[in-house]
Simulated scan of single mutants.
Amino acid sequence: MEAAEIRKLAALEHQHWWYRERRRVLARSLDALVRTGEKPGRALDVGAAGGGNTRVLRGRGWDATALEYGEEGAGVARGRGLPVIRGDAIALPMADDALDLVVAYDVLEHIEDDKSAVREIARVLRPGGTALVAVPCDMELWSEHDTAVGHFRRYDRDGLLNLLSSAGLRIEEVRSWNVLLRPVAAWRRKRSTGSDLEDLSPLVNLGLSAVIAAERYLPVGKLPGVSVLVRARRQDPVGSSPRPGTD
């Protein structure tokens, strides 16, 4: 993502409906891990930009580091008091089996060689460690927004699950996100001439926040959305074959 987009993100993410709800999605995923007996440990937030998700991780007790390729995002994260590593997702500067959790939210679509990035995520996770991945879905939604923010692709479910499984990650949960607003996104993207990241009026922001929040309570995770969320676990060396799962 270009420096200008990083600056816009950092300025908007505190109040913008999409970023606020995405942080809640991450927090709920972390809470679900704890309920299954997972204790907070070492974590890496890949493609952290200004570190919004890193702060969620640290707030939930994880020893989390932000990994950011660009100087702009790394500088914002450091300015927020977060531990930051400058690095490339296709060559993570971490030892094998070093981490309990890797978060890669809206990262893989920015990487041309996404296969190498996923292999690196699997490499740095300990056996049994967890990967939380979010990507934009469905090439039918491709627009000038994707071009403006540096996307190489949007994913379909099968393609994403095959990508993760091929690196030795066992899929535990997959669900759609931003389902209720997909028709609005599709309409807007057809008219898009650039990035959709913009400051919204308080009333519009409030309305969109209410709609996306409703998804927390509705069984819509199997319907088409704007994003796909996956929880996967690195297999033990003698683990079973990967198998897709659904919510």
Rank of each mutant, 00 (worst) to 15 (best):
S165F: 04
R86W: 10
V238F: 13
I6G: 04
A210W: 14
R42S: 15
A89F: 05
G59H: 03
A48M: 08
L200R: 09
D196E: 15
R42C: 07
A10H: 09
A167K: 03
A167I: 06
P136G: 10
R55V: 11
R28W: 09
V184Q: 03
E5N: 10
L218R: 13
L169Y: 05
L206E: 11
A148D: 12
D31Y: 03
G75N: 12
R191K: 13
R234K: 15
V102M: 03
R231Q: 09
W142G: 11
A186L: 14
H151M: 11
W62Q: 08
W17C: 05
G59D: 13
F152M: 01
D97Q: 10
R123S: 03
A98P: 03
R55G: 15
G194N: 01
E21Q: 15
V226T: 14
R55I: 12
E5L: 15
G207I: 08
D88H: 13
Y19N: 09
S201F: 00
P93S: 03
S240D: 14
D96L: 02
E72Y: 01
G225S: 08
R243P: 01
A134H: 00
R60C: 13
P202A: 09
M139C: 03
L92S: 09
L218A: 12
A77L: 02
G129I: 06
L161A: 05
P40G: 02
R231D: 01
W62V: 05
A213M: 00
A11K: 07
F152D: 03
V204K: 12
V211W: 09
L30G: 09
L181N: 06
R35T: 11
A232Y: 08
L160Q: 04
P224T: 07
S227Q: 13
L99Q: 08
A210M: 14
L67F: 11
P83D: 12
E173I: 01
T147F: 11
L30I: 10
R86D: 02
A10C: 01
G194I: 00
P244L: 01
